[in-house]
Amino acid sequence: MSTTATMPMPMRVRDPYRLGHGHGHERQPSTEHGERGPESKRVIVGYGFWIFLLSDIVMFSALFATYAVLSGNTAGGPSGKQLFDLTNVAIETACLLFSSFTCGVASIGASRRQVGVFYGAMAVTFVFGAVFVLLEAREFASLVLQGDGPQRSAFLSAFFTLVGCHGLHVTCGLLWLLTMMAQVFAKGFRADIMRRVLCFSLFWHALDIIWVALFSVVYLIGAGQ
């Protein structure tokens, strides 16, 4: 705080909170109220992406609410108990769990600048994620082929919307994963690339959290009723 008092007056008048300075790259002396200046850009980017992830989770909660309201309305069609194959769901869950673990290994490899660990763990993450998407696509295809597609009942519309939205997120995550491997290959572990790797791993772990809610509410509770 004492540092601002000693600053030349015209400087403080034009930019009293020093907004045009620093850009988060260096620790700034205090402005007026805080004990220090802006955080590093990594922290700011990570926090911003965290806010986005929470808003994404809020969107999923709307889909969950829709599913919960409509899950009983099968319109004379099959219910979850007749449709869900829990073995398939268990394999999908295992895939996402292990891919979350290998994604964590990849982020450790990146922060320790271990190229082999990073590429290896990212590749394993991609394989697990791809197996998950393929299993889900196969489940959807078999449902549609036996006439239980999204237009069959309100329950199935909500089911396809909710689970499909998560599958779409995982598919986008797979594309992002390949992009990150390519960017690290082309540009190395630069600070901006490292921020993107941080955001990607946040995204991937958040998808796993949503899947936990999904297999519990939709598949496990749905198959029991």
Partner: peptide
């Protein structure tokens, strides 16, 4: 551009998903 990592600012905030690899906290590494 300097590569600012967490360890440069022991008193700074932490980004979600970031970890102190050198620290002895359970739940890191």
């Amino acid at each position: 551009m300097s590569d600012v990592t967490m360890d440069d600012h022991p008193k700074g905030d932490r980004a979600p998903g970031d970890e102190h690899i050198e620290s002895e906290e359970p739940g890191e590494g």
